Simulated assay, not measured.
Amino acid sequence: MPSLLGRKFPGMIARPMAPFYISGLVILYGVNSFANTLAATDEYKNDPRNPANKNQSAH
């Protein structure tokens, strides 16, 4: 019975893709840091939609 996924070919997956994984993590870290920085500015610090605001009132 043939496999549903087709024939298996031996080959490395993780090692050639490592630069893409690393760059993805760096970009996600940068976007997260930038979003946290923007959320801490004076304009958005007291916004009720800000997830960093701990004093949210119940709706």
Rank of each mutant, 00 (worst) to 15 (best):
V26G: 03
R15T: 11
K8H: 15
V31R: 02
N36I: 09
L4N: 14
Y21S: 08
F20Y: 13
R15A: 15
P2F: 15
F34G: 01
Y44W: 05
L28T: 12
E43C: 02
G24P: 01
F34E: 03
S3G: 05
G30E: 00
D42Y: 07
P51T: 03
V31I: 05
I27M: 04
M17N: 07
A35F: 06
K8E: 15
N36V: 08
A14M: 10
L4I: 15
P48V: 05
A35H: 01
Y21R: 05
P10Y: 13
I13Y: 12
P19A: 02
V26Y: 01
V31Q: 02
L28M: 12
F20H: 07
G24R: 01
S3Y: 09
L4Q: 14
S3M: 07
Y29I: 13
K8Q: 14
G11D: 02
F9K: 15
D47Y: 00
D47E: 05
M17V: 10
Y21A: 09
P16D: 02
G6N: 06
A18Q: 10
D47V: 01
N32F: 12
Y29P: 04
S23A: 08
F9H: 15
Y44E: 00
A52G: 15
Y29C: 13
A14C: 12
N50G: 02
S3E: 06
A18W: 07
M1V: 13
T41A: 01
E43A: 08
M17W: 11
A39G: 06
V26P: 00
P48W: 00
